[in-house]
């Protein structure tokens, strides 16, 4: 926290983005959003699709929930309701986005259509909204944090998808195929991400 005090606003935004994406990667250091990773990360393409959707949704919902918290929950003294409130806001927002996408671009709707409902119940999204409260961010910083966390998650699932494409699951022992090998891949990757820890303190 004290790291930001002497930074300009823009500098802090960049820093928060990078730290959220790498040192504090929500998938590889917090192990959130795992269910959709196990389900979708078989190939790079859908992984990137889901990743893009997550970036968009984390950024927007982080901003929305920041406002809800600052102007609704905090003044009313109902901060203890943040978890359930955030879930409801996220769900409504995703529904809304789904509608807009459906109307505006059917192609995009069919590409993202299956992912958007998945995202509603993605714990990574809720995690971002809850973690951002740990630090007194401004709205701009919150958006950077949301975008960073989403980017980090998208980056991780894309890399996992790439690795799983190369892994010949047929050659694996039966019990290891699918989720087993994916969890091992994630474990090894998160070991690598330990290397980032402490570089930036959020």
């Amino acid at each position: 926290m004290e790291t930001f005090a002497d930074l300009t606003s823009l500098g802090s935004v960049v820093l928060i983005f990078i730290s959220a994406a790498f040192t504090d990667n929500i998938l590889l250091t917090r192990f959130l959003g795992m269910c959709s990773v196990l389900g979708v990360s078989k190939k790079v393409d859908p992984s990137m699709g889901l990743g893009a959707a997550v970036i968009f949704v984390t950024t927007c919902t982080a901003g929305l929930n920041h406002l809800v918290h600052a102007y609704l929950l905090a003044p009313l003294g109902l901060e203890y309701l943040r978890l359930i409130t955030f879930i409801v806001v996220i769900a409504a927002f995703v529904q809304f986005v789904e509608m807009v996408v459906e109307r505006v671009s059917e192609g995009l709707y069919n590409a993202l259509g299956i992912f958007l409902p998945l995202i509603t119940v993605n714990c990574a999204i809720l995690g971002v909204s809850l973690f951002m409260l740990g630090t007194p961010y401004s709205l701009l910083q919150t958006l950077a944090y949301g975008a960073g966390a989403g980017t980090g998650w998208a980056f991780a699932i894309t890399v996992i998808g790439g690795i799983r494409e190369k892994v010949n699951e047929q050659a694996l022992p039966r019990g290891l195929a699918g989720p087993g090998i994916t969890l091992i891949i994630i474990g090894i990757m998160s070991l690598a991400f330990v290397g980032f820890s402490g570089m930036i303190r959020v």
Partner: peptide
Amino acid sequence: FSAAAFLAILT
């Protein structure tokens, strides 16, 4: 009561 009312109104 206020929590329930808040959630009900919000949803």
